[in-house]
């Protein structure tokens, strides 16, 4: 079986959906952050695959940038989470209810 672009895309979609479902079903904030990372990674797969497919570097560049941004985002997220944990002693997002109607 030849591995085609479609396979890469299907893989990416699977990963993406996994991340998405994980995001909406898990309560642990850290897990949710990881799910976001998972989704971003799936995007990287798509970019890399297409980059290869189109034989240009645009996609690869994107992937690199994506790493950086994802890392920054995770860092900020964790920082805020630490602050929250200090006060609340929990990372369960369902407990974040100071702001609601």
């Amino acid at each position: 079986m030849e591995i085609t672009l479609t396979h890469y895309l299907l893989l990416a979609m699977t990963v993406f959906l996994t991340g998405m479902v994980g995001f909406v079903v898990r309560r642990n904030a850290i897990v949710m952050l990881m799910c976001v990372e998972l989704m971003l990674s799936s995007v990287n797969i798509v970019f890399a695959a297409y980059s290869r497919f189109h034989a240009n570097a645009d996609g690869h560049v994107f992937v690199l940038m994506n790493f950086a941004v994802a890392a920054a985002e995770a860092a900020i997220g964790l920082a805020i989470l630490v602050e929250i944990f200090r006060r609340r002693r929990t990372v369960n997002v369902d407990d974040l209810k100071a702001l609601m109607e």
Binding site: F23, M39, E73
Partner: peptide, 15 residues
């Protein structure tokens, strides 16, 4: 809390 909500959902939407 606001920051975290914004960030986590922002990341989700970024994906």
């Amino acid at each position: 809390e606001a920051g975290f909500k914004y960030l986590i959902l922002g990341g989700f939407s970024s994906a």
